[in-house]
Write a protein that binds this DNA or RNA. Structure first.
Lengths: 349, 349
DNA sequence: CTGAAAGCGCTTACAG
DNA sequence: CTGAAAGCGCTTACAG
């Protein structure tokens, strides 16, 4: 099953007429011993000639390091690999890993019967992983817990509590969105987010929004909540039912871009125009947010930079350091999906 | 750096009062020896108690198997990890791997200075990989080549020539799209695809389309080609310039859905209505194709099933079998983006 | 500056 | 049915 002939260190050594130790030291740039440049050249040359590649399993077994990081996105609320948000992050991680000489494994563990699948647990305990970058937003259970138990260095992406994290400022993002709508003059606002208490980031964004409404003097009865599932479909439905029940709403705040796009489509289906009849805002600033018609007002929290930051932290962690957690820049991006409410609307309930 | 205390087989053996060999055999379900159910129970129990997880590096070193597959999408024409098409495939592969007990590594090698990056080559020669699922559509150079050289079992996804593949029928897909437009009555058709001779699948789709036009008696001068890059942006521009130069065009065929969506947006920007003023078709049947307004007429080639099929083939290959390559079902999905040309249009040039 | 040797944690003939 | 031993391909003290 194995490739017919894979040259080993011994082959290199023999060919270069040195011991295996010497070959190993030269090939790994060991600071031990200053080999004559002649020896060094011989080894390098021999290695080249026979196409030597170190066996990573052997190296890993002896050194306790695999040069493999894993990115884990639990399969729960969401189907991770088709969510653009997740992809943006993975793309950044893959680039950074590749630049720094790490390989990247992807894992999307399932949670059932009170625990994560055995395959995931086996991976964590296998010694294969030098580190894990993990999104762990579900309040009800933690995919990070088994990582900690296994003693694998971890960096969290998002809002679960952990000393090493990369995240945006979700509270502030929610705040900015609400402030933007209020300053445009909206007075009846629908909000679509995950059920309260389920998801760290969604909760924070919502809290930022509610607190800000209060600060601006808008009573809670003027905010209309509808549960969503972070998917386009869920918000398509949610937006329609929200406006069926509360036609006085003049602005819709979706707690991610995917839902904002769903809401936009839902509103178009009812014949409303965006932003003339209703304003819509999202969160994440996915590429898609700029491509919808009209383009979405949303929050940018620099997700393209998360992957690189997370990998850097993991590398530092492995080197025995205590990396600073990273709160990424979070800004409001105003585009065409928001405008003041039409005259005579939004001012009385 | 390694977890402080990782129990080994020896720990299990000691605790269960058996030899390491016995512990190993029981834990790996070796058919060698029929252990007394009492011994078996003791070992299983001990293993449970101390939370034993096999060290995969050791296992891999001795067995020559890692239980790791890699999915590789070269970073060339495209930025793989944000293309939904790629993601659909990866999602399928990840599920299938997880079900069958394999871990999944992702790699997106860069091609420069006439070869792929060292990191990729090192991975292939490392002995870490039990198999590779690879997309290798670029005519100019091959990411599959080094895989073969390294002796790693491979399955190709798409149209590069190789005995083990999973793909749709791109020639037939291109054919069906063209036939659909011609039967609606279109006589001046724009086509946006990758530059001829660059990309296997794009070329086949184009060839299917051109051949079919000829078969229907439409002269080649009535087909207007514009190079694209498989991205939304490229088609947004391409569609506009195509119609600037050839306003007689009544239908646009984009060789993937992403470009079809770009074309749709490009046409909307010029004030055209879809499908009244111009019909648009895509390829792939991504979820997004059904969500645009109007939804896209496109080709479905079952990409959700590709991952599972590819993993199955790899598993069979590793078992010494000769898996049948798979041509996946390829069908025309007619939606709202196509209609007959308006009266008096498309009939004279 | 270089080498012989031990050992990482497993699996698997080989004996019994 | 069970165990002692060799060995997978490396790295790294320990000697010289």
């Amino acid at each position: 099953m194995k490739r017919d002939f894979m040259p080993t260190l011994e082959d290199v050594a023999r060919r270069a007429n040195v011991s295996v130790s010497t070959a190993s030291r030269i090939l790994t740039n060991d600071r031990h011993g200053r080999f004559s440049s002649e020896t060094r050249a011989r080894v390098l040359h021999a290695s080249q000639e026979i196409g030597y590649r170190p066996n990573l399993a052997a190296r890993s077994l002896i050194s306790g390091q695999s040069n493999i990081f894993a990115v884990v996105f639990p399969r729960v609320i969401d189907t991770p690999f088709t969510a653009l948000m997740v992809l943006q992050i993975i793309a950044g991680i893959e680039s950074a890993c590749s630049e720094r000489g790490y390989h990247l494994l992807v894992s999307s563990p399932r949670f059932q019967n009170g625990q994560f699948d055995a395959h995931y647990l086996q991976l964590l305990g296998s010694g294969y992983l030098d580190g894990v970058i993990i999104q762990d937003e579900n309040v009800a259970f933690s995919a990070l817990e088994p990582v900690i138990q296994a003693g694998v260095p971890a960096v969290v992406v998002g809002n679960r509590e952990y000393p090493y994290f990369v995240r945006g400022d979700d509270y502030r993002g929610g705040s900015m969105l609400m402030a933007h709508l209020l300053e445009l003059g909206h007075k009846r606002i629908g909000i679509i987010g995950l059920p309260a208490g389920a998801h760290y980031s969604s909760d924070l964004r919502a809290k930022g929004a509610f607190d800000t409404a209060a600060r601006y003097g808008l009573p809670p009865e003027c905010l209309f909540w509808h549960d969503g599932e972070f998917t386009r479909e869920s918000a398509l439905t949610a937006s329609r039912s929200l406006l069926d029940r509360h036609p006085e709403i003049t602005a819709l705040m979706a707690l991610n871009d995917r839902m904002a796009i769903g809401a936009l489509q839902g509103m178009l289906q009812t014949g409303r125009r965006i932003p003339e009849d209703i304003s819509i805002v999202g969160y994440d600033n996915l590429p898609q947010a700029g491509e919808s018609i009209p383009p979405l007002t949303t929050i940018d929290h620099s997700i393209g930079l998360w992957g690189g930051a997370a990998v850097d932290m993991l590398v530092e962690l492995r080197a025995g350091g205590q990396p600073q957690p990273r709160s990424m820049e979070t800004t409001l991006i105003v585009r065409g999906s928001t405008a003041p409410p039409r005259e005579g609307r939004g001012h009385s309930g």
